[in-house]
Simulated assay, not measured.
Amino acid sequence: MPYVHIQVTRENVSAAQKAELIAGATELLVRVLNKDPATTFVVIEEVDTDNWGVGGIPVTQLRQIQQT
């Protein structure tokens, strides 16, 4: 019973994109490990950019720097 946990920053990830991630992760486990898709769980967690750091700063700050 595989469990895949995908974490992304909360930055307008659409329902269609999430569905594609779920389908793709499931297909990968079926193809590579011969897992049953009916018992393969994929969870997508969206994390606020204030709670995700890169290079020592929160992504919220990083996005502000990148826009200037």
Rank of each mutant, 00 (worst) to 15 (best):
Q17A: 11
L28W: 06
I6D: 02
R31V: 07
H5T: 07
D36G: 01
Q61G: 12
A38I: 00
P58T: 12
P58E: 03
K18L: 06
T40E: 01
H5N: 10
A38F: 02
W52V: 12
T60W: 05
P58D: 09
E20A: 15
Q67H: 11
I44Y: 05
R10H: 12
T26P: 07
K18Y: 05
M1R: 05
L29W: 03
A25Q: 05
I22C: 07
L21E: 02
P2W: 03
H5E: 06
W52I: 09
D36F: 01
E20W: 05
T26A: 04
L21M: 14
T39N: 04
T49V: 14
T40W: 02
I22S: 03
V13R: 11
Q17D: 10
T26F: 08
R63K: 15
P37H: 05
E45Y: 01
E46W: 03
G53Q: 02
A23Q: 15
P2M: 04
Q61W: 00
R63W: 06
E27Q: 15
V30S: 03
I57R: 11
I57V: 14
E46C: 00
P37S: 04
S14M: 10
E46V: 04
D48F: 05
V30K: 13
E46S: 01
V13P: 02
Q7E: 14
A19R: 14
E46G: 02
D50N: 15
Q17F: 06
E45P: 00
P58F: 03
Q66M: 13
R31Q: 13
R31D: 11
E11S: 12
R63E: 08
Q7Y: 10
P58A: 10
I57T: 10
Q61S: 11
I65Y: 08
I22M: 07
A38C: 01
R31G: 00
V32N: 09
A23Y: 10
T68C: 01
T60Y: 04
E45S: 10
Q66T: 07
L21F: 13
V59N: 12
V54Q: 08
T49Q: 15
T68I: 04
T49P: 12
L21T: 02
A16I: 09
T9F: 09
A16Y: 00
T39Q: 04
P2H: 04
G53V: 09
I44A: 03
T9Y: 08
W52F: 15
R31L: 06
V42F: 08
T40P: 04
V13S: 02
Q61A: 12
T49N: 14
N12V: 07
E11H: 14
W52Q: 09
T26V: 11
V32Y: 06
T9N: 12
G56N: 07
G56P: 01
A16C: 01
Q7K: 15
D48K: 09
H5R: 08
Q67M: 11
E27N: 13
Q64N: 13
A16N: 08
D50A: 15
Q61R: 13
Q66E: 13
H5L: 12
H5Y: 07
V59Y: 08
L33Y: 09
P37N: 03
E11R: 15
I22H: 02
G55H: 07
A15G: 07
E45H: 08
V32C: 09
R10V: 00
G24T: 11
K18A: 04
A15F: 05
A23G: 06
I22L: 11
V43P: 00
Q61L: 10
I6L: 12
Y3V: 13
V32Q: 13
G24D: 05
